[in-house]
């Protein structure tokens, strides 16, 4: 299934006046595609994600998922920027939260939960509580939790913003491998241009508020990608182009 966003507009009431946050956004995320959204602070990226996830309604326009699919599978799940793990649940139980909602039997839930923990390289940390895990590990659990419900679209809101450079680099590499292997569709919001270029098939650049699409840059490099791509002149070329668009 693919995500189709058409003419999305969203505004907020602030002191009686209307503040336009998103103005006529249209784009698609095809099955298996990794699309990043970059833009200056306050361009409405987080609002866009909430509209797409159905956590907020839009004023105008349409968010839809098109194509044939299993109606049991959730359309979308989110990895949040802040830490949104449940501190009263263990790592495994955090991951199985969404599976409980899908009424999957306990044994099956735990099997799936363990599979995703292993996948995020956290095997053996099943019973650890969030506060016993490092920042990078917590974000891995959060990613596993969102992926475990097997959504058509995985939405990620600056998942690496709070991580140090080394931890973020490792997580990027693992994410690249896992996402590419599974053919997972991802919509990724970030401030970090190199991260967007490294991970994405397409990078959508938004303007300042109200957010409109300024340009879309296709990253012509097959996935999974490795460190060599990050060090190539092609990579630097994309960085230059995006930085120019954003300055």
């Amino acid at each position: 299934m693919k995500l189709v966003v058409e003419g999305l507009c969203k505004s907020y009431q602030r002191d009686g006046t209307k503040v336009l946050v998103l103005e006529g956004l249209s784009f698609e995320v095809n099955q298996g595609e990794f699309v990043s959204i970059v833009g200056p602070s306050g361009c409405g990226k987080s609002t866009l994600l909430k509209c797409i996830a159905g956590l907020e309604g839009s004023d105008e326009g349409l968010v839809s998922y098109q194509g044939n699919g299993d109606s049991q599978r959730p359309l979308c799940s989110i990895v949040f920027q802040e830490l949104a793990l449940f501190p009263w649940r263990s790592a495994l139980k955090n991951i199985t939260f969404g599976l409980e909602e899908l009424r999957i039997p306990k044994r099956e839930r735990e099997r799936i939960g363990r599979k995703y923990l292993e996948m995020m390289r956290l095997g053996g940390f099943e019973s650890f509580r969030p506060k016993e895990l490092s920042g990078g590990m917590k974000q891995r659990v959060a990613i596993a939790r969102a992926m475990a419900v097997e959504p058509y679209l995985l939405v990620m809101d600056e998942p690496m913003a709070s991580l140090d450079a080394i931890t973020a680099q490792r997580l990027q590499m693992d994410l690249m491998e896992i996402i590419s292997q599974k053919g997972q569709s991802v919509l990724y919001v970030t401030h970090n241009i190199p991260e967007a270029v490294f991970l994405s098939d397409r990078v959508i650049v938004l303007t300042e508020r109200p957010g409109r699409i300024k340009e879309e840059v296709r990253i012509e490099e097959s996935r999974p990608r490795d460190l060599a791509f990050k060090l190539s002149s092609k990579f630097v070329g994309y960085l230059e182009r995006l930085w120019k668009l954003l300055s």
């Binding site: 996830a53 949040f80 949104a84 449940f86 969404g98 909602e101 939790r145 419900v149």
Partner: peptide, 25 residues
Amino acid sequence: SIWILAARSLGASTMSIWFKVVLPA
């Protein structure tokens, strides 16, 4: 509120949010 948003994005019903998020929190 981030816990409630997270639970909703994982498909939790209102009842689940009450008993599995608000109650333990």
